[in-house]
């Protein structure tokens, strides 16, 4: 995608709404430590791996927020911040700005406010988010689908067929699992669900992906009820 800065692409969104989102970013505790002033020198772009492959510029991000250009910040929040790989190579800024961390904050604002592009950017991660939030572990062995990984060679079929046995061959008992990466005990999972609930993570998920939210609520409410907690997520 090519960024055309000559037009105010999101002129349908009110200035007040854009300003509200920007103010939310500026109110973040990290803000004063990650944005000072921008020389527009381009050292961040020179160091940025994403900038080599996309029409993406960490300098633009720093410039837009330093200039408090509310319209431009909104455009970048929609069309640019998801192109960052969050490697923080840009942290070499002589003014000690961190375009990467500015992007972190802007992404959080985008997610909290359910911006359309945040939904799109996170769409492909639904399965992983579900796994992490429901089990506390990330990629599990049973996610290994042989057809999806031809580059792993023909043995991948054998391994997939007898996954359970292969896992039992691993020395640590906690890894004798197929549905999760490791054994997650009841106490951990209950605590995890309570954390998701109490810290507002579930609200974020609801704003971004309602389907995923509903599945997670089913799983969590049932498990929490069994453990004796009376928790509702609405």
């Amino acid at each position: 995608m090519v960024l055309d800065l000559s037009i105010n692409k999101y002129s349908d969104v009110t200035y007040e709404e854009k300003e509200r989102l920007f103010e939310e970013a500026k109110a973040d505790d990290r803000w004063e430590h990650i944005l000072y002033g921008c020389y527009e020198c381009g050292i961040c772009v020179a160091a940025c791996p994403s900038a080599r492959f996309y029409d993406f510029s960490p300098r633009l991000i720093a410039q837009a927020v330093a200039r408090e250009d509310v319209d431009l910040v909104y455009t970048l929040m929609n069309d640019s911040i998801w192109d960052c790989s969050q490697c923080f190579s840009c942290d070499r800024c002589p003014r000690q700005n961190s375009p990467g961390q500015i992007i972190t904050v802007l992404r959080e604002v985008a997610v909290r406010n359910g911006l359309q592009t945040a939904k799109q950017a996170l769409e492909g991660y639904g399965r992983i988010i579900y796994k992490i939030m429901s089990t506390g572990s990330q990629v599990s062995p049973d996610m290994l689908q042989p057809d999806a990984f031809p580059d792993w060679g023909k043995h991948v079929y054998e391994i997939a067929e007898n996954l359970d046995i292969w896992r039992r061959a691993l020395p640590p008992e906690t890894l004798h699992t197929t549905e999760t990466s490791w054994k997650v005990d009841d106490k951990t999972i209950i605590e995890l669900y309570l954390i998701w609930h109490m810290t507002g993570v579930m609200d974020l998920i609801e704003g971004i992906d309602e389907g995923l939210f509903m599945i997670l609520v089913d799983v969590m409410e049932e498990r929490l009820e069994e453990a004796g907690y009376d928790v509702t997520f609405d």
């Binding site: 000072y36 002033g37 330093a66 200039r67």
Partner: peptide, 14 residues
């Protein structure tokens, strides 16, 4: 220069 830009939010445009 720095205070103008950082504290007082003066906008420098090349």
């Amino acid at each position: 220069y720095w205070p103008a830009q950082e504290e007082f939010k003066v906008n420098y445009i090349k």
